[in-house]
């Protein structure tokens, strides 16, 4: 079990990182991730292949994702337990932000 510091150092995730990690709760290959990010973010975030390749490399090095399948030069990845903990912490932060947004939006 990693210490909370080990999780904390990834936070806050960038918007792109957040959506890429979300899309890997189920195994998915690169192009699948790009399409899924576009769908779940309601078109607000697009991920280019250069950006995604870099994320796959660093996420895998950091043990946040793991390769689960390789088919015709397409690699599929899945979130690891550590990756899930990072994502859960990020979601906690976002929930606090959403509550604040609801509290303050009428005062703007």
């Amino acid at each position: 079990m990693p210490k909370s510091d080990e999780i904390q150092k990834y936070l806050p995730l960038t918007e792109s990182m957040f959506y890429v990690m979300l899309s890997l709760v189920d195994p998915l290959h690169g192009y699948g991730v790009m399409q899924k990010v576009e769908t779940i973010s309601r078109g607000s975030v697009t991920i280019g292949p250069g950006t995604l390749y870099g994320m796959f490399t660093s996420f895998e090095e950091e043990g946040l994702i793991t390769m689960v399948k390789e088919e015709e030069r397409r690699k599929s990845y899945l979130l690891t337990a550590k990756g899930k903990r990072v994502l859960a912490k990020q979601i906690e932060r976002l929930e606090i932000m959403t509550k604040c947004a609801a509290e303050f939006k009428n005062r703007l």
């Binding site: 690169g30 280019g48 030069r73 397409r74 690699k75």
Partner: peptide, 13 residues
């Protein structure tokens, strides 16, 4: 590390 996977990703996109 993996040029094939890299190029495949760009191709798919």
């Amino acid at each position: 590390k993996d040029r094939d996977a890299y190029l495949q990703l760009f191709h798919d996109a």
